[in-house]
Design a protein around this nucleic acid. Structure first.
Lengths: 245, 245
DNA sequence: GTGTGTGAACTTGTTCACAGCG
DNA sequence: CGCTGTGAACAAGTTCACACAC
């Protein structure tokens, strides 16, 4: 399956002399944008210094986790005081690679693609919607926030010109794989897939799913779980030492 | 910060005598919908029996993981043969609570809310878009796929009537918290938040984020990482003290 | 033989608890 | 004294490897 196994298991290199940044675990990377958002809100409301405790409670995580996460980026806090919000934002931005502009291409300009093209999510940070693709002749040529919708066949030319970094797939499921192939062939190395389809891409392409149906199913599980528990509570369960409360 | 700590840390109950189903780890729950989708595609293409190996390669995970995940639901495979696809789908559905209909309310009928309301994600499985909310008078009364858009003030009445289980928040960020409170007060116990805002909800409410901006930032990190690696290979990397910049 | 189901080893992620700096 | 930064303990999740059912 994996054609080019990147590091299947046995790591042989003793220690790669400290990579560009210290190795940041995946779980931490996923939390950094959350801290980022909270810090910005705090800054907007006049707070300049923030403790791990405060950040943690806002992000609904443990304070030790916040400190560990942040310490992976470097020693940016002041003992006894906390972190300088503005400075921390800058450091997180740098660690996440948000100190550059990333050109994004959206493929599939239906309801969702259109909504995303106009969304604040791109505009707010350093993401520029650089290209829009659709194969429907009645849509091609339309402009959304100043960017023209083009036919996928034009992608190779467009990609060369714009050095597209991130592709967003909002096509119907049946064509999602074809579109993914096209994007990958044009040099796009990160794909965000909104189509309800499991895609295959080469090992060096980062592929993430944003899938409404999967999210809903996970919620369904928890909801059902809860129902099960309630049922269990109503019937036997004798609660002796009960902290009735 | 956290007003009603639900289970801050120390769990006191010793072990609730085996819950409804055997305890299914969170990571497994997140993968079940993926297996589900693959199984359905296989079934559609005529396959009736499937091995953990095949499922794994389609889902891009390890075969042992598939087997462990599935064995948590029960012993549904046949040694030497594999799993019966149709039967397995049924079992996963049951485990995920998809053998009931879940009424869903969507709050915020902008570009995204509208796109979701029409989306296949809901229709395909047992989720019924039961209510749509928006406070814009020019939208209220509009029908989307047969469901009328109503004012949030009507929510209490609507909720009582429909026993809404899952709320989807697609409002602008500034009102997201208010809408969340409203939904929670009306008895909705699972929220899917698309607004770029960290929300506070009582401990017994399940809250998940689907956040374009966070997804993009994670992609940015990996993209930057990749760039860094390339550069690291090219240059000798002399790392003295001065961070001139 | 073939492929499941599962203990046991291992890896990753989380939390604790405290030394030490400001 | 307050709060960061981090080693060490712990928990969750993954992978291996193999007994065993078909």
């Amino acid at each position: 399956m994996a054609p080019r196994t990147p590091r299947p298991n046995g790591d042989d290199r003793p220690a790669p002399a400290v990579p560009p940044t210290r190795r940041i675990p995946e779980a931490t990377v996923a939390r950094l944008p959350v801290y980022q958002r909270i810090l910005e809100e705090l800054l907007r409301s006049g707070t300049t210094t923030v403790s791990s405790e405060l950040l943690a409670s806002a992000a609904q995580v443990n304070a030790a986790k916040v400190r560990k996460d942040l310490s992976l980026l470097g020693s940016f806090g002041t003992r006894g005081a906390g972190y300088d919000a503005a400075f921390l934002i800058e450091q997180i931005d740098r660690s996440l690679g948000l100190d550059r502009v990333w050109p994004v291409v959206i493929a599939g300009i239906g309801n969702l693609g259109r909504a995303l093209a106009r969304s604040q999510g791109f505009a707010a940070r350093n993401f520029r919607v650089a290209a829009l693709l659709d194969n429907d002749p009645s849509i091609i040529g339309e402009h959304i926030d100043g960017v023209a919708v083009r036919h996928p066949d034009e992608l190779p030319a467009v990609a060369a010109e714009l050095s597209l970094a991130i592709g967003v797939i909002t096509t119907p499921a049946p064509v999602a794989q074809r579109v993914a192939d096209l994007l990958v062939d044009s040099g796009v190395r990160s794909l965000l897939n909104f189509a309800p389809r499991v895609l295959e891409v080469p090992g060096d392409v980062l592929l993430r799913y944003v899938d409404l149906s999967i999210e809903l199913q996970i919620m369904s599980f928890h909801q059902a779980q809860r129902l099960g528990e309630e049922r269990a509570v109503r019937l036997p369960v004798i609660r002796s030492v009960g902290v009735t409360r």
